[in-house]
């Protein structure tokens, strides 16, 4: 990030401001803009980015306010409405009302067999997905940054062995490994013959996805750190007698912040879909925990008779991932204008 040289009071075109300056109409106070302000103004001009930011925000709000939404809407994702009201499902356990039971009461229809409300299940499912995605991204980013920095800064044997270790993890087929190791992690907490509570499953997904997800970030940070390490300002700091702690936290990290932020934004949707994929395969969350991935594996059984159950979660997840992907691109463009798409 270059330091801002243009002096502007507003976020308007600097040339315009400059011309009023030259005309000498009135003396304008010279104000620099921080890199953050520049990035923000650049981001605001990206229409796709703004739209996606709004959509993402809406999803986040829905996730946070899920209990409020479900209270206002008057349904619970855990309730089996089909069992209470026998007119909702027919003899085959399929919704009686057309289009998968869509009605004023059940906006997105009800699930076959149990008659759960799909709308609240999606809202709560987003909450689950986003929650898992966030904790996984935060922890894998932390791991990746710490390991990558250490590798790049320390170099030598440490760098070599950690590098080979991450090569080894990268050689693992990630989905297969996650499926195979999920029971192992879960079992480390709860014996396999006991029933597994939801939080244990959450921890299982968290540990596995984070352990298999830090290598990309570590590699990136390592390569940037190696090139930054040789720069003059780091050398100057060393000569001035700065401690390694100061060099890492005050000199290196601020220069890595952009990369870390962009990479983390782009990883979140990937992690959310991985988590949903695990639940789809039956190793993540299980009924009755509301989860998008689990809804897909349920819904796939009814693709011939009840498409509604499949379509709403599908649209919800695809929109979310698409918005987040595009938002990630926009954030990258705003923070790092050098990259060409």
């Amino acid at each position: 990030m270059t330091t801002p040289t243009g002096a502007t009071t507003t976020e308007e075109d600097p040339v315009l401001v400059g011309s009023t300056d030259a005309a000498g109409a009135k003396p304008v106070e010279l104000l620099g803009r921080t890199p953050g302000q520049i990035a923000w103004s650049r981001f605001k001009r990206n229409r796709t980015g703004v739209v996606c930011a709004v959509i993402t925000l809406a999803y986040i709000l829905a996730a946070v306010l899920a209990p409020v939404i479900s209270a206002l809407y008057g349904k619970s994702p855990y309730e089996f409405y089909g069992m209470k009201d026998s007119t909702l499902l027919d003899d085959f356990g399929l919704p009686v009302a057309p289009n998968g039971g869509m009605s004023g009461d059940f906006w997105f229809g009800i699930t076959p067999q149990t008659g759960q409300d799909i709308f609240t299940n999606i809202v709560y499912g987003i909450r689950t997905s986003l929650g898992v995605g966030l904790i996984v991204v935060i922890s894998s980013t932390l791991m990746g940054v710490v390991i990558g920095l250490a590798q790049g800064y320390l170099g030598g044997k440490f760098d070599y062995f950690v590098g080979r270790f991450s090569d080894m993890l990268l050689a693992l087929p990630s989905q297969l490994t996650a499926i195979a190791f999920f029971p192992i992690v879960v079992n480390a907490i709860v014996p396999i013959d006991k029933e597994t509570p939801t939080w244990v499953r959450l921890v299982g997904m968290w540990v596995i996805l984070a352990l298999l997800g830090w290598m990309g970030m570590a590699r990136l940070i390592r390569s940037i750190t190696i090139s930054l390490r040789e720069r003059e300002y780091i050398e100057a700091a060393k000569i001035a007698g700065a401690s390694p702690r100061r060099i890492i936290f005050k000199e290196l990290l601020p220069n890595l912040a952009t990369t870390i932020l962009v990479q983390a934004t782009l990883t979140l949707p990937a992690m959310i879909t991985s988590a949903a994929g695990l639940s789809f395969l039956g190793v993540g969350f299980t009924s009755p925990t509301p989860d998008l991935g689990r809804m897909f594996s349920d819904a796939a059984q009814y693709y011939e008779s009840d498409l509604t159950y499949l379509i709403f979660p599908g649209i919800a997840l695809t929109t979310f991932v698409l918005a987040f992907n595009l938002l990630g691109d926009a954030v990258r463009d705003a923070l790092d204008p050098k990259t060409i798409r």
Partner: peptide, 16 residues
């Protein structure tokens, strides 16, 4: 769109 969608969503749709 293709990059953001999921196989477990598209597969049953395509079969249907």
């Amino acid at each position: 769109l293709g990059q953001s969608t999921q196989i477990f969503f598209v597969a049953p749709l395509a079969m249907a």
